[in-house]
Design a protein around this nucleic acid. Structure first.
Lengths: 329, 329
DNA sequence: CTGAAAGCGCTTACAG
DNA sequence: CTGAAAGCGCTTACAG
């Protein structure tokens, strides 16, 4: 794999490499005839400019790093899709990394991305109190948080109102008459923290008490199946389950079906995200809609703005969640 | 965003930049004490090496480009996941692009990736007769095809036996007594071409005739809904539908439910890919299992091998598909 | 073991 | 309008 360089192009066109560069980059100060000769030479040789060299000089790579939890969760696939649409329309390229909810991996990804000198970052931070985000702040790396934010002020972010997500789901279950509501939560992120608060506040406002045995936090190591086996072997079983996301709800439903537990008769279930297949599963899943695509688009737009001008005030957007009632509750 | 350079590190450590480089890269010929001084300086300054500069010199970027159809299809999300697992364990970084079944976009992605001097490429080619793959071949760019291959000999690939996919699905429907089988196919790729052949051969072998009105190819511009409206407004309606993939099957089911057409009583439906939610939808979807994750893993392993040694013979793997019978047929 | 020098492929002032 | 030169941040022979 030998690459054609600008030197080869210049030689074939019979000009200096500076001139070749100017012609190739559509700069002023090149005669039409020279430009044509250079362009033809480039075409004939199949010249592909070396972005490494370009980036080294210009200090800009036109590349954005994205760090999400996992592309296996369709929620993030949609978010990334929104990001990509905006970014690629502006000539940006993106480098995608999965943290798998591991702060270490998140840090590694940040470092790799930094080494590649990306112009900016969009990330869904693993932790609400995040050293990694502090690092970005301290090193003045342009970034915007998506889907989750952190304890820090002065960050740009696009999230949804996660406290409200927790309240909407829990209030609705309570209204349906449920008193023992299992919450299968996620781990450490702002979404997990706030949805839990929403869940708790809904219970308290209805005069119900909070049972720690009905709250689980799924960390990367935990086994959902074991947790459910345990919960459903107890005397006091839940009559409803609130899942952090549809992706978790899916696994819970798989378990319930396997155990022949009827939904919603024996236990109601509600998810979050409104993934596109949730209305087709059996039974159609009640869930909380989050504007995933929009979230991606907005975060990308904000980053592009920030990259253009050095405005100080952070842009912070909180999207409204919406309850979608179907037959699983 | 000013970056610390190796010059800064060398200065702080009180050594030359060559020595600093050697210490940083764990090369021989550096005294332990010097090495320690350099490492400490680097740490104190928060030095992050510039991969652009490194790549420019070494000619290696430790970066692999991936081009798939769309990350929105969970099939590819799983494939990419398998690729990532292998690649990242070997210190490779990946750059992901979506072609959206558009050869133009595929070409652009190839060029961008080439400009970034990726060490190699993994792609799911849009077309069976692909100029883009020819380009890769002609320019001796190391690559392996995944999920789909092309007419060219001498390519490395990991695909599944798509002819068999077409036969398995169609034969099964015929065995169930269906004679009017609608095939909603994809576009131009080897998978589309071969599954269609499998479909046809199954029909012919059973003495059924091939009705062009029952074969549709979904190109990027076509509207599935319109097609279905049209098909189901005809006199002769299909009694079964074979969908190129589960993702399409999902949309077909959405349509059938909306139109109150009963599955499988009015029309049977079979998909392909065995996405993880298919067993939970209503009714559970009959489909053809393809080893998606394995496909990704194998393609990555082959690429890594090829990058190490310049073996001539291409590696070509054809995975076995498997019918998964559920209640939608 | 160490430092100075050359060079990777490009762009951008700078003279002409 | 054009070419030669400097320099982006690094690595790698090459003398010492």
């Amino acid at each position: 794999m030998k690459h054609v360089t600008i030197r080869d192009v210049a030689r074939l066109a019979g000009v200096g490499i500076g001139t070749a560069s100017r012609a190739l980059n559509n700069k002023k100060d090149v005669s039409p005839i020279t430009r044509k000769r250079v362009l033809e030479a480039a075409k004939r040789l199949g010249y592909v400019p070396n972005s490494l060299a370009r980036g080294l000089i210009s200090g800009k790579t036109k590349k954005i790093g994205i760090i999400i939890t996992t592309i296996l969760n369709p929620f993030y696939a949609v978010v990334v899709s929104g990001i990509e649409k905006i970014l690629s329309s502006q000539g940006y390229t993106l480098a995608l990394y999965n943290s798998n909810e591991d702060p270490e991996k998140e840090r590694e990804s940040i470092m790799t991305l930094r080494a590649q000198r990306v112009d900016g970052l969009i990330l869904a931070p693993v932790e609400y109190e995040s050293n990694n985000v502090k690092y970005l702040l301290e090193n003045q790396i342009p970034f915007v948080l998506v889907a989750r934010n952190t304890i820090d002020r002065n960050t740009n972010y696009v999230v949804c109102d996660d406290f409200k997500v927790g309240r909407l789901a829990t209030e609705y279950l309570i209204k349906k008459g449920h008193k023992r509501i299992l919450f299968i939560n996620s781990w450490k992120s702002s979404s997990a923290v706030l949805r839990l608060e929403g869940y708790k506040s809904a219970l308290l406002d209805s005069g119900l008490k909070i049972d720690p045995k009905f709250i689980y936090s799924l960390d990367p190591g935990s086994n959902l199946r074991d947790i459910l086996e345990n919960v459903f072997s107890q005397r006091k079983k839940p009559t409803a389950i609130f899942c952090f996301c549809d992706s978790i709800a899916l696994e819970v439903i798989r378990f319930l079906k396997y155990r022949k537990i009827k939904i919603p008769d024996d236990v109601a279930i509600i998810g979050c995200d409104n993934l596109d297949f949730t209305e087709l599963i059996d039974p159609p899943l009640t869930t909380v809609e989050i504007s995933k695509y929009e979230m991606g688009e907005k975060s990308a737009k904000i980053l592009i703005e920030k990259l253009k001008e050095e405005k100080e005030e952070p842009v912070q957007i909180i999207l409204e969640p919406k309850l979608v009632i179907r037959s699983s509750t």
